[in-house]
Amino acid sequence: MELSSRMKKAELVFIPTPGISHLVSTVEVAKLLVDRDERLSITFLIMKLLLDPKVDTFIDSVSTACNRIRFIHLSKYEPDPNQPSKSLFSLIESQKPNVKEEVSRLVSRSESSPGSPTLAGFVLDMFCTCMIDVANEFAVPSYIFLTSGAAFLGLQFYVQALQDDQKVDPTEFKGSDAELVMPCLENPLPAKLFAFCYA
């Protein structure tokens, strides 16, 4: 991403899925971006659904090494003990008001201080697409970052094509000895594994 010469400073808001595995790959992309242009800064909005000391240690190390990447911890989600446990997507959805509040602070700071960066967009984990609504409220673009490899993305496209074009339900392969040839994989995938993943 290259910033226009007219733009003084820009800030991206990154929203990763909770957990160290998604956070590390997302931070690595953020480092590459800030290394490309000194006018860019990145703010991570961190959702904490579980206590994970590795996340705090990692955030501390990145904060020390790079002053244009910062982290804001959102209010921790406290589940209602009387309610059944919610899915990850519901938990992420419940953070929308907190995200909106923090981004409002960023925008207010930018408007009140001429040297502050302007909000340029949201970069969202593939599981945080509900935050597109928040980005739209601030009239900025949102981008999806897939933390998995290209083979996983190809597999997702393959599954979607099976369902849409061939009207095949992946669970129909349960117990099958067939092997599926996919353009995204070097070797055929045993269909029974495919069915297990999508059961």
Results as ranks from 00 to 15, higher is better:
V107Q: 04
V24W: 01
D80C: 05
A65V: 03
M47T: 00
P79L: 07
V27T: 01
K86V: 11
E101S: 15
I59R: 06
V168C: 04
C197E: 10
L189P: 07
Q156F: 13
T118K: 03
A30N: 03
A139M: 13
K167L: 12
E186L: 08
D37Q: 03
T129C: 15
F173G: 01
S21N: 10
V29C: 09
Y158F: 13
S25C: 12
G154N: 10
D37M: 01
G115T: 11
V27Y: 05
V134G: 00
T171F: 08
G121Y: 03
K9N: 05
S112F: 01
E179H: 12
L180F: 10
I72K: 09
I144R: 03
P183K: 12
F152S: 15
S25N: 10
S108A: 15
K96T: 06
V55A: 04
D133Y: 10
E186P: 10
R109V: 11
S142Q: 01
S61I: 01
T26I: 13
L51N: 15
L106A: 05
M1E: 14
L23R: 08
M1T: 12
S112E: 09
D164V: 07
D125N: 07
N98M: 08
T147M: 04
A150H: 00
L155S: 06
M7G: 02
L74A: 03
Q163N: 07
S21F: 05
D80I: 06
A199S: 15
S104V: 08
S85Y: 09
L74P: 02
L162K: 05
T17Q: 11
E11H: 02
Q160M: 13
A178N: 09
Y198Q: 01
H73E: 11
L146C: 12
P16M: 08
V181M: 08
G19F: 03
V29N: 13
S85V: 14
S4R: 05
K8F: 01
A151F: 01
A150L: 06
E111Y: 07
M126Y: 12
K86D: 06
K31S: 03
K167I: 08
F152E: 13
A10L: 04
P117S: 00
T17F: 02
Y198C: 07
F127G: 04
S104H: 11
E172I: 08
K76R: 15
P18N: 02
M47W: 05
L162C: 07
L12K: 05
T129L: 15
G175A: 00
S94G: 04
P18E: 07
A150M: 06
L74T: 09
A161Y: 15
L3F: 02
I42Y: 00
L185N: 10
L51K: 15
N67I: 09
